[in-house]
Design a protein around this nucleic acid. Structure first.
Length: 424
RNA sequence: GGAGAGAUGGCCGAGUCGGCCGAAGGCGCUCGCCUGCUAAGCGAGUAUACUGGGAAACCGGUAUCGAGGGUUCGAAUCCCUCUCUCUCCGCCA
C-alpha cells in the first residue's frame, strides 16, 4: 500500500512511477474520491464534537426536564451522524480497496523496461559443466533413475504434482536441511516453521489479496488459504506490531511447501518439476530500518547465491525491470540457474525489497529509542532457494553419461555420505 | 463436538447503580534531582490513527477498552452476533 499522504501531495510523480510498470497501472480517480471522503469526514467530526460537548453539559444538569428540547435536537443530530458514518464507511472502503489494488512504486534503482526482455544481467558465477554427451532434461534423468514419478503424482492428485521416490525424496529433504543449516548457521537467520495456511489478513498484508485471489488455493467454507510462499506467514509474524529499533534487522529463514494455482500458465512448463502446484522452498525474510533495506537486499541475495556456489552450479543474477517486478516489490533480483538439459537459465530465486509497501499494509513498525515516532519497517525477502528447482539443477548439471547423477560434495553429509544416485 | 471462564494502554491490573474514564494503581521506560559504586529514594513525563492551526515547540478536533451491530442525549460499563484465548469432558496424531 502506498502512503496516502504521498499520493495527495505528489500525485503526478506517483502516476509517472506507477506507469513505468506498464499500461494497466493508474491512479485515476484517486483525487476525487479522497476529496469527497475528507470533506464528509470534516463535517462529520464537527457534528460529533457538538454532540460530545452537549453530552458533557447534560451530565452536569440535575433536572433533565429543563433540557428536554435540546435532547430532542441531539437525537436528530445523532441520526445525522449515524447516516454520515455509514456513508463514510463506504467511502473508506472504496478508498481502501483502491489503495490495496495499486502496486508498489518501482525503486529508482530498478531499471526501466516493459518486459522480461529488458531485465539487466548483473553478474554470472561459475561455468556450465563440460559434457561430452547430450545433456538430458531433468525429467528424463529423474524418471530413468526412478526418483521422480510424474505419472503417479498425476494419479494421486493431478497435473503438476510429482511423487519423489527413494534417493529423490532424500535429495529434496537433504537440500532443505542444507539450506536451512547454511542460513541459520552461517548467515544469521532464525529458523521458523510457520502454518502452511493463513487467513485473509495475512494474505492482504503481504499483497497477495485482494488482487490475486485466483492464484491461491482456498479452503472450502473457511477464510483460510494455502500459502503460495513462506513470505506470507513469516512476514506477518510481526503484523500489527511496533518493534524496537534495536531489534532490527530481524532475519528469519523458513522451510515451507508452497501452493500455487498457476492460473494462466496452461501449457507452460508442463513437463518436469519446474512448475508445480506444490513445491518446497526455503525462504529468507528480513525486516530493517528504511535506510538499511537496500543493503539488506544485496546481503540476502548474496546469502541465496551462496547456496548455488556451494553446490557448484553456474548461475546469473538479473535485475528485473520496472515492467517485470511483482505487485508488491520496489526492486527485485532473480537468480537464474543454468540448466544444460534445457540449454537455458531458469529462475531459482527471486529476491525483493518491498520497502514500506508490505509494512504499511500489515502495520509493521518500529520505534527508535523510547520517544521516537513509530515508523514503518522495510521488508525484504527471497528464496534461498526453491528446492524443487534446485533438484532440477542438480539432476541436469551433475548428470553423467551412464545416467547416474553425482551428488555435489557439500550435500553429501546431508545424504548420509551418498556420492552418486544410480539405478540399484 | 459438549460445558464453562475470559479478552482493558509496552506489561500487570482496577473500573461500583451507564455521564466528570483515553481510562485508577503498579511495573517498565525516558528525563531531571539525590547518591563514593551498586541498590534504593524523590520529581516530571510516558498509547495509536486520522485530522484543523502553526515555521516549529506546541495547541485543538474525532476515533479507539477483542471485532461488528443495537439501546441511549451519552456505553469500557446494558443487550445481540462473531472471533480469539484458557479450563474441563469427548474424540484423535
Amino acid at each position: 500500500m502506498l502512503d496516502i499522504r504521498y499520493l495527495r501531495e505528489n500525485l503526478e510523480e506517483a502516476e509517472t512511477r506507477i506507469k513505468s510498470r506498464g499500461e494497466g497501472c493508474s491512479l485515476a480517480g484517486f483525487r476525487e474520491l479522497d476529496d469527497r471522503k475528507r470533506k464528509l469526514l470534516y463535517a462529520n467530526e464537527a457534528l460529533k464534537a457538538e454532540k460530545n460537548r452537549f453530552s458533557e453539559e447534560i451530565a452536569k444538569v440535575k433536572d433533565k426536564s429543563s433540557v428536554r428540547r435540546q435532547i430532542e435536537d441531539m437525537r436528530a443530530t445523532s441520526q445525522t451522524i449515524k447516516q454520515q458514518d455509514e456513508e463514510l464507511k463506504q467511502l473508506d472502503e472504496e478508498l481502501r480497496m483502491f489503495l490495496l489494488t495499486v502496486p508498489n512504486l518501482p525503486s529508482p534503482s530498478t531499471p526501466l523496461g516493459r518486459s522480461e526482455a529488458d531485465n539487466v544481467e548483473v553478474r554470472r558465477w561459475g561455468t556450465p559443466p563440460t559434457m561430452d554427451f547430450k545433456a538430458k532434461p531433468h525429467w528424463e534423468v529423474g524418471e530413468a533413475l526412478r526418483i521422480l514419478d510424474f505419472e503417479t503424482g498425476a494419479k494421486l492428485t493431478g497435473a503438476r504434482f510429482t511423487l519423489y521416490r527413494g534417493a529423490g525424496a532424500r535429495l529434496e529433504r537433504a537440500l532443505i536441511n542444507f539450506m536451512l543449516d547454511l542460513h541459520t548457521g552461517e548467515h544469521g537467520y532464525l529458523e521458523m516453521l510457520p502454518p502452511f495456511m493463513v487467513n485473509r489478513e495475512s494474505m492482504t498484508g503481504t499483497g497477495q489479496l485482494p488482487k490475486f485471489e485466483d492464484d491461491l488455493f482456498k479452503m472450502e467454507g473457511l477464510d483460510y488459504y494455502l500459502i503460495p510462499t513462506a513470505e506470507v506467514p513469516v512476514t506477518n509474524i510481526h503484523r500489527d506490531e511496533i518493534l524496537k529499533g534495536t531489534e532490527l534487522p530481524i532475519r528469519y529463514a523458513a522451510y515451507t511447501p508452497c501452493f500455487r494455482k498457476e492460473a494462466g500458465s496452461y501449457g507452460k512448463d508442463t513437463r518436469g518439476l519446474i512448475r508445480q502446484h506444490q513445491f518446497n522452498k526455503v525462504e529468507l525474510v528480513a525486516f530493517t530500518k528504511p535506510d538499511d533495506s537496500h543493503a539488506e537486499l544485496e546481503r540476502l541475495l548474496g546469502n541465496a547465491e551462496k547456496v548455488l556456489q556451494l553446490l557448484g552450479i553456474h548461475y546469473r543474477v538479473m535485475a528485473l525491470c520496472s515492467g517485470d517486478i511483482g505487485f508488491s516489490a520496489a526492486k527485485t533480483y532473480d537468480i537464474e540457474v543454468w540448466l544444460p538439459g534445457q540449454d537455458t537459465f531458469r529462475e531459482i530465486s527471486s529476491c525483493s525489497n518491498f520497502e514500506d509497501f508490505q509494512a504499511r499494509r500489515a502495520a509493521i513498525r518500529f520505534r527508535d529509542g523510547e520517544k521516537g515516532k513509530p515508523e514503518f519497517v522495510h521488508t525484504i525477502n527471497g528464496s534461498g532457494l526453491a528446492v524443487g528447482r534446485t533438484v532440477v539443477a542438480i539432476l541436469e548439471n551433475y548428470q553423467q553419461e551412464d545416467g547416474s547423477v553425482l551428488i555435489p560434495e557439500a550435500l553429501r553429509p546431508h545424504m548420509g555420505g551418498m556420492e552418486r544416485i544410480s539405478l540399484p
